[in-house]
Design a binder for these strands. Sequence first.
DNA 1: GTCTATACATGGATAGAC
DNA 2: GTCTATCCATGTATAGAC
Lengths: 216, 216
Amino acid sequence: MSPETAKSLETKHKLLEGALRTLTEQGIAKTSARTVAAAAGVNQALVFYHFGSVDELLAAACRYGAEKAVARFRPRLAEVGSLSELLTVGREIHEQERSGGHVALLGQLLAGAQTHEALGPATAAGLDLWIAEIERVLVRVLAATPLGEFTDPAGLARAVAASFVGIELYEGVDAAGAQAALGALEQLGALVAALEELGPVAQRAVRHRLRRTGRR
Amino acid sequence: MSPETAKSLETKHKLLEGALRTLTEQGIAKTSARTVAAAAGVNQALVFYHFGSVDELLAAACRYGAEKAVARFRPRLAEVGSLSELLTVGREIHEQERSGGHVALLGQLLAGAQTHEALGPATAAGLDLWIAEIERVLVRVLAATPLGEFTDPAGLARAVAASFVGIELYEGVDAAGAQAALGALEQLGALVAALEELGPVAQRAVRHRLRRTGRR
DNA sequence: GTCTATACATGGATAGAC
DNA sequence: GTCTATCCATGTATAGAC
């Protein structure tokens, strides 16, 4: 779309950062070539020169931003060894995201992607970075437990990621409600964690129940 | 904002329906006085005459649409008697929502509300309709079980509602992923449901665990 | 009271100057 | 390679016709 000179890369970088800032601060509805260029401090026409269209810039920004955000938490996630620890890290991520807003950004892009065809694959890819990370942790954490047999880490990771996006969006309109929601999820996690630590007799009873009802 | 003659009410109604259709089919980014008026089949200026501004129309549409959607599922939710039944109804709602899209609409509004001040309260109110309904079911279902002591129905209802919105948005970019996510949540529900049905000895063990770890 | 016509702002995109 | 000038579509809002 454009050459790879140092100057060109710098402008592209400015535009990517500008797109991220605009999306998080103004939302998808107010994000345009003009607003992004203003945030980036470059001329509006450069959006089209370097990325072809606004949608393609946003798609690139999504990949770029998600990679940056996931990278920041990757080491933290790598050392998670239990389900309840994962929940604690989830809360930590939430706290940091409240200022950074990279997850809410995915929410904005998900909203935009419902109609802007070009955004769909990019947004899915951005989410997949989070999903892959979460799934890796879940596989590690769950495989060792007696629950491994009944859980689908791939699906669970997707549920966690999507739910997280929903809660981050929700936080924007009801901060107290979002806090309550996170607290309740932690309780739920504690419940499953408690199950992990049951004695063999109780576990067999649970497994028996699950085999009967948990078909799918 | 305008009187309540039959004619006026009819136009308002058309605009509300038009706003809902535009939001679900085009997303918040493409929703404007023009697109809504086109969907409603009325002149664009009537948005401002009847509602004052686009944001106020969207806020009204949110209340109107959420009430309509919740009303449709209220009787179905009223007869839910167990956790696993609730999960089944959740999947049913999802199936119907895939065509109607009223939950994804809340996602669009949540995305828009991050910047359009006026949308925040209305969106929160719309979500609260769902939350109240879910909470009522949770209170009923959980109170009877030994888990009642450790759960926060209010927070859990908010988590469920926000997660559902996130998953509906996610479905737009990865239908298979969303299916997997819902499946995993059903497994999780089955797990908790299985816990409900344990014998007294195992339940005591779980409760003991929870008292130690489930502090918050 | 209800709606049409119209003014004015913003956004997407490109041609051509530097 | 970058930016200015500019075109045209779309968006918000209001003045005034019916």
